[in-house]
Amino acid sequence: MSSGSSIPYHLRHNKAVDRNLFVDLLTKVNNVKNISDYTYISFGGPYLEDFKVINSALKIKKMISLEVDENTHKRQKFNMPLSCIDIGKEPLCSGDFLDNYTFAKRKRHIVWLDYTDPAKINEQLGEIESISNKLNPFDILKITMNAHAETIGRDLTLPINNDPREYRARKLEETLGAYLPYPLNDNHSGSKTYPTTLLHAVKKAMRMGISSRSDLVIEPVSAFIYADGQTMLTATAVVLKNEEVKINRFFSKSRLSAWPFLNRDWESPRNITVPSMSLKERLFIESLLPHASAQEIIDSMEFLLADDHRSTTKQLKTFIEYQRAIPWFSKVVF
Rank of each mutant, 00 (worst) to 15 (best):
M1C: 02
S2H: 13
S6C: 07
L11E: 15
K15M: 12
K15I: 04
K15E: 14
V17S: 09
D18V: 04
N20H: 05
D24N: 13
K28W: 05
Y40Q: 10
I41A: 06
Y47T: 12
D50E: 14
K59N: 15
M63W: 05
S65I: 07
K74M: 06
L82Y: 10
P91L: 03
C93P: 11
A104M: 03
H109T: 07
L125C: 06
K134G: 07
D139F: 09
I140Y: 08
I143V: 15
I143W: 07
E150W: 07
L158K: 15
P159H: 01
I160K: 13
R165N: 15
Y167S: 01
A169L: 11
L176K: 10
L176H: 09
A178E: 14
Y182E: 13
N185D: 15
P195Y: 02
L199V: 11
H200V: 00
V202D: 03
A205R: 07
G209E: 04
G209W: 10
L216A: 01
L216V: 02
I225Y: 00
A227H: 06
T231K: 13
L233R: 04
A235V: 06
A237F: 02
V245S: 06
N248Y: 01
R255I: 00
W259T: 05
N271W: 00
V274A: 12
S276L: 12
M277H: 02
M277Y: 03
E281L: 04
S287C: 12
S287T: 06
L288K: 15
L289Q: 14
L289G: 14
M301Q: 12
M301H: 05
F303E: 08
L316S: 06
K317G: 04
T318P: 03
P327C: 09
S330H: 09
F334W: 05
